[in-house]
Design a protein around this nucleic acid. Structure first.
Length: 406
RNA sequence: GGAGAGAUUCCCGAGUGGUCAAAGGGGGCAGACUGUAAAUCUGUUGGCUAAGCCUUCGAAGGUUCAAAUCCUUCUCUCUCCA
């Protein structure tokens, strides 16, 4: 099999392919142009979006030509695949702004050069589409009977499916066709929930252009306990450091289940396969630390990864650098006046409300400096601060904040 | 246009006059066990100046000593019929 495909397969990227032998043969002949689309429905990509983009990099490094397609047009509709409910409509302005943010994040990860690493936006051909012409040219190739057999729609037959969403598949198929015409794109890759849409696009290219195209899907990445990967208490694991701090990002990977380590090393880092295997079969906590550093470095850069690692070491007692821990700046005067503990924990960001803070204290999860703080009414005085005017607060076992009083 | 059904706390979902800050489950948080893991068990899970008070059951009015629960209007969702 073609080495690039072999790599993807070995690293766990391949779920389904429309014609693996045919695709392999095509890739053996020379560079293949492929695309991966994502709809800018929010202000930041999250880690779940990234699986296909890791594959993008593997393929580009093997000499193929990638197109990251921003769904500035399709985001106006909403893809029903894999969703049980209709998505909220988003304003055009918000979509355009999101698309620009996505592009920036992807640029950092992929490094667009307009040659092998390209991007495009389907807004260019979808926004001003003429409905009647579209129906005549494209709609006639789609069988409703066939569409209804796709799993994506079957699920929605239960909860309801509006016509606007039912149309999504036509638009995505049209994207594939347009990219074939504009860039010679022959392959679409995406998450397995995109299978129906990908197959439909491939068939459209065959009907309209008489050309053969291919589709390849990746498994939807789940954690070993069956949850969607990349979910945290606060929601998805975002790439935007303002939405998910590099420290939290790092900690997510540091705490993945043992059974997920190898899989994640293979998919979310570019370490050689042998090295991934060696790491995962050795000291498992060391492997998690390496995984966390590697992924954080890829997304936020090496400096941020180093900082997150140092902060984690400091927090979890292995020395490290305290200044890299999550930090809150509070007023020294308040400590001198006796800082009410509940306020202190809220102000440090370790509890959203005083009730939560109270519960934390009552349940024994509040630690000030080295001491468990058991009295919710006792204030924290300036004597709790060290020589540098700092104090480490802990909520539970994993949440630390370094308080700097000034 | 007609006939029904529905909107409950982060989510799903009970509740049909006071005992309701509202069952149960999920999720979250904390504790135990550990390895910053998973699984498991236990507790907890609207806010506050915590005795008590305030806000919350789609929105606005009304009845009542008392409303998530009854009445009126409105908004939205779903199903069936045309």
């Amino acid at each position: 099999m073609n080495p690039a495909l072999e790599t993807l397969k070995a690293r766990g990227f391949v779920q389904q392919c429309t014609d693996i032998e045919g695709l392999s043969a095509l890739m053996d002949q020379g560079p293949v142009t492929f695309y991966i689309g994502c709809d800018p429905t929010g202000p930041s990509l999250h880690i779940g979006h990234m699986v296909p983009f890791f594959a993008y990099r593997h393929l580009v490094e093997a000499g193929h030509i990638g197109i990251a397609l921003l769904g500035g047009g399709t985001a106006r509709i909403g893809d029903p695949s894999g969703k049980s409910e209709m998505r909220k409509m988003i304003s055009y302005d918000a979509i355009d702004a999101n698309a620009e943010l996505f592009r920036g994040q992807l640029d950092r990860f992929i490094g667009f050069d307009g040659k092998n690493r390209r991007h495009d936006n389907n807004k260019h051909w979808l926004a001003d589409l003429n409905y009647i012409e579209f129906l005549r040219d494209i709609g006639r190739h789609f069988s409703v009977n066939r569409m209804l057999t796709f799993e994506a729609y079957k699920q929605r037959m239960e909860t309801g499916l509006s016509f606007i969403e039912f149309n999504y598949q036509l638009l995505q198929s049209y994207d594939f066709l347009q990219l074939y015409k504009r860039h010679g794109c022959r392959l679409q890759i995406g998450g397995d929930d995109q299978w129906g849409n990908i197959v439909a696009g491939m068939e459209l290219i065959r009907r309209v252009e008489g050309a053969e195209a291919f589709g390849l899907t990746f498994p939807l990445v789940m954690t070993s306990d069956g949850k969607k990967m990349g979910k945290t208490e606060k929601g998805a694991l975002f790439l935007d450091p303002a939405m998910t701090s590099p420290y939290d990002f790092f900690q997510y990977w540091r705490n993945v289940s043992d059974g997920d380590v190898l899989r994640f090393l293979l998919m979310f880092t570019f370490l050689p396969i042998d090295e991934c295997r060696a790491l995962a079969s050795g000291d498992i906590n060391g492997a998690k630390e390496r995984l966390a550093w590697e992924v954080t470095a890829l997304i936020h850069g090496k400096d941020e990864a180093d900082k997150a690692l140092a902060g984690a070491k400091a927090a979890f007692g292995g020395g490290g650098d305290k200044s890299a821990m999550p930090t809150a700046e509070l007023s020294r005067a308040r400590f001198e006046a006796g800082y009410p503990v509940l306020d202190l924990f809220v102000d440090a960001g370790l509890a959203p409300t005083k009730s939560e803070a109270r519960r934390l204290v009552q349940q024994g999860g509040a630690v000030v400096g080295d001491a468990q703080w058991k009295d919710e009414k006792a204030p924290v005085g300036a004597d709790a601060l060290d020589a540098e005017g700092e104090l480490v607060l802990r909520a539970g076992k994993k949440r630390f904040v370094r308080v700097v009083a000034s």
